[in-house]
Computed example of a mutant assay.
Amino acid sequence: MLQQRPFVPLGAEVPVWQDETQTNASRRDVTVALNTEKPWVRVALNAIVDAVMTVDLQGTITYMNRVAEVLTGWSEIEAIGHPLARVLPLVDGKSQPTSMTSGQRAIEENRAVGLSLDCALLRQDGSRLEIEDSATPIHDRDGRITGAVIVFRDASMSQVMLERMAYLAQHDALTGLPNRALMTERLSRAIGLARRNRLMVALLYLDLDAFKPINDKLGHAVGDSLLQAVASRLRDCMRDIDTVCRQGGDEFVILLAQIRKPEDATRVAEKLLVVLSMPYCIQGQVLHITLSIGISLYPDDADDADTLMHNADIAMYHTKRNGRNGHHCFAAEMNPQSIQRRRTEPGVHRPHHPSQRSFDF
């Protein structure tokens, strides 16, 4: 008959028995103890995205959450009672075993510690996984060290998150198009390249005519779907070296890089007027829209990104005032004061953030 094993709380020392039957029984006892003592602790630790393990003073595994099981390839039942170095074997950038685990260091140095950046985990199946790891000593109520908790994660997931955050910082959430920040960066680069190669750059400022009534009458869901459909058509019309940006609300900006003459820009504008005027079928509704387009050119109209954008904006409003559904190139005689008056008219608001719902028309 197996000797009854004492209750083992989370983080406490777990004796290692040589007999395999006894060892397996002890692992089951530890698991039962964890569930019996504080079941909410296990639920909470299994719900987080990081891997969590605990060890006693001898570096023996006393607990693993589900993420730790997935990353190491060990089940908790298999791992409990084994040394940390066996369940979480670490190698450096040259595939050499590390001299000490973070759990051992946390216990010996009595402080939180972390892995060096070039460490990787050798999983149970022999595969290698880059991880980020930290360990903190566990103290009892009297302040004595009783073990350590090790927290680690798949480092590649961290890189994915960083890349995702960088993407979101430069792209419109609704359409996936570059936002104003990325457009400004690309426009400045295109101007520099055109200056060196004696080429031209065109900026087309687009506003959807009569978008506000559609958005107001049919709802924001239909309006958002329409904006996404417009973005898709704009992308399909452009070359790989060009950029389509959602400026905000129902306004888009197109950067035509490396053109040779103004007619290249007007030809694109005329194509867009035709393509975007074709019917849209959105959530069972057949919708029709037109465009007002303003065009400014480097170096004819401006030699910097901000002025080029401003002039294209003025040219677009000139198109609005002259019947819409067309395009105009910027000219010095276009009156900026009339543009300002239009923007300050009662009931007219020109948003520049994708989340705003009042649209000019």
Results as ranks from 00 to 15, higher is better:
Ser75Ala: 06
Asp50Met: 12
Gly143Leu: 06
Ala44Arg: 00
Leu121Val: 03
Val49Gln: 13
Ser338Phe: 08
Asp236Ala: 15
Asp154Ile: 05
Met165Tyr: 14
Ile241Gly: 09
Glu163His: 12
Ala106Met: 05
Leu226Glu: 14
Val222Thr: 13
Val32Gln: 15
Arg260Trp: 10
Ser156Gln: 13
Leu174Trp: 08
Ile107Ala: 10
Asp303His: 12
Cys281Arg: 15
Met238Asp: 10
Thr146Tyr: 01
Arg239Tyr: 07
Leu34Phe: 11
Gly192Phe: 01
Arg28Gly: 12
His352Phe: 07
Pro137Ala: 08
Thr54Phe: 04
Gly249Leu: 03
Pro279Phe: 10
Phe211Met: 05
Asp242Arg: 03
Ala257Val: 11
Val14Cys: 09
His328Gly: 06
Val67Asp: 08
Ile314Lys: 03
Trp40Cys: 04
Gly284Leu: 08
Glu333Gly: 00
Pro279His: 11
Ala231Phe: 03
Leu276Trp: 03
Leu129Cys: 05
Met64Arg: 05
Asp118Lys: 10
Pro178Ala: 06
Arg66Thr: 14
Gly103Met: 03
Val253His: 02
Pro6Phe: 00
Tyr205Ala: 10
His310Cys: 07
His82Pro: 00
Met53His: 03
Asp250Thr: 01
Leu234Pro: 05
Arg189Asp: 11
Leu208Met: 09
Asp242Met: 05
Val30Phe: 05
Leu255Pro: 06
Leu218Lys: 05
Met1Trp: 05
Ala68Lys: 01
Glu270Met: 12
Cys119Val: 14
Asn215Asp: 09
Val268Tyr: 09
Tyr280Ser: 04
